[in-house]
Computed example of a mutant assay.
Amino acid sequence: MAFGKSKNRRHQDVAQKKAAMAGAVRAHGPGLLKAIVLTGLTCALLWGGIELRRWALTSPFFLLKETSFSGLHRAHPGELLKLSGLTVGQNLWTLDVDSLERAMATHPWVRDVAVRRHFPASVSVEVSEHAPVALVVLNDLYLLNEEGKPFKRLQPEDGLDLPLVTGVDREAYLADEAKAHESLLEALAMVAAYTSARPGKSERLSEVRVADDGLVLVLSDGTQVRMGEGAMEEKLQRLARVREGLKGKGLSAEVIHLDNRARPGWVAVKISSPVSERNGTSAQ
């Protein structure tokens, strides 16, 4: 009898274990299956990503075939390509756009540059160049842009005829760049204001001299105009009236003073000597 009871107990234990396992499967089976499926999908995605990356980096489909440029006037495409090392046959996915932009921006005429990839096989380069508005003497001659930045040493092939800014030497510029930049901006403002009046050929602005007591203009006919400081628009209008009056009388000025601080409305003019007097001869 004892033997029969032990056998029944074993059957009961087995049945209970089976029931417990069935319950666990019912309770946790869906979650476990989901975890297995997600793990499989993750592995598949990782493998697929690796293979896709390998294909993208090696496929001839993404090799550079064409580079287009816009905004170029002084710089040349070949120069920018040489600086950047960008060549046909490079993989677009491996291009470091930031590095390409920094390299091209070292060209003296380039102010800003934006490089864009156009998949599958082309690159566009949009360039904004410096616009020279004057020359400045800093030991050598440099081109000045409209922001008062000397951006390039003047070369004979540049072929530019621009007003000259003097009175700010290289040492002063290096010692106090902020102060020198302020003086350059003041000179450029004068250049812009004067040229906007569209002067005649003989009245074109040749030089703007930065002096301790203000700006001095030198016109293409040799006339010096001492502007002093402040009220530049009014002084330019006064200068136009004075030159028109002199022209009507057949006279020309050697120096025109518009820098009287005590009496800002006054104008003093030193009349040029006739050619015969300057050469020490008598008029016929």
Rank of each mutant, 00 (worst) to 15 (best):
T42Y: 15
F3G: 15
A105C: 06
A180F: 00
P120W: 05
L92V: 08
G200M: 00
M227P: 05
V208N: 02
K249F: 06
E129F: 10
P77Q: 07
G167S: 02
L64F: 05
H73W: 11
L63M: 13
K82V: 06
R9M: 12
Y173G: 06
A211F: 04
E233W: 03
W93Y: 13
R9A: 14
R226N: 04
P274M: 13
R74F: 04
D221L: 01
R10C: 04
L95C: 10
S59L: 02
E233C: 04
Q12F: 12
T94L: 14
L251C: 06
Y173P: 00
S282T: 14
A253N: 01
R278C: 01
K152S: 00
E182Q: 15
L57M: 08
V165E: 04
A131N: 11
L72C: 03
V210R: 03
Q12D: 11
A231W: 06
E277C: 03
D213R: 11
F61L: 14
G280S: 08
P150V: 01
N260Y: 08
G31V: 10
R111I: 01
D13G: 08
V113W: 01
A211D: 13
P274S: 11
L138Y: 03
G29I: 04
V115W: 02
P108H: 06
A253Y: 04
A240T: 10
L57F: 04
A56N: 13
P60Y: 03
L160F: 09
L143F: 14
R170E: 05
L64H: 12
L239P: 03
A253G: 07
K17Y: 07
W55K: 12
D176E: 15
S220D: 06
R263I: 06
G89S: 11
V110N: 05
P156H: 06
N139Y: 12
E126Y: 10
N91D: 02
E233H: 12
D98G: 11
E79H: 12
A44H: 11
K270A: 11
A114Y: 02
L45S: 14
F151Q: 05
G245R: 01
H118I: 09
A131Y: 12
A105T: 08
L38V: 09
L32C: 12
H11Y: 11
D176W: 07
A27P: 05
A262H: 10
K5F: 12
L162T: 02
E229Q: 13
G167F: 02
A175Q: 15
T106H: 14
V97A: 03
L162I: 03
G49E: 13
L45Y: 14
A20V: 09
L46M: 15
F151L: 07
Q224V: 03
E101I: 11
A253P: 00
G40V: 04
A240S: 14
S273G: 07
Y142P: 03
K5R: 15
A75S: 02
S206F: 02
Y194R: 01
K270W: 12
M232G: 11
R53D: 08
E66R: 13
D213G: 04
A268R: 10
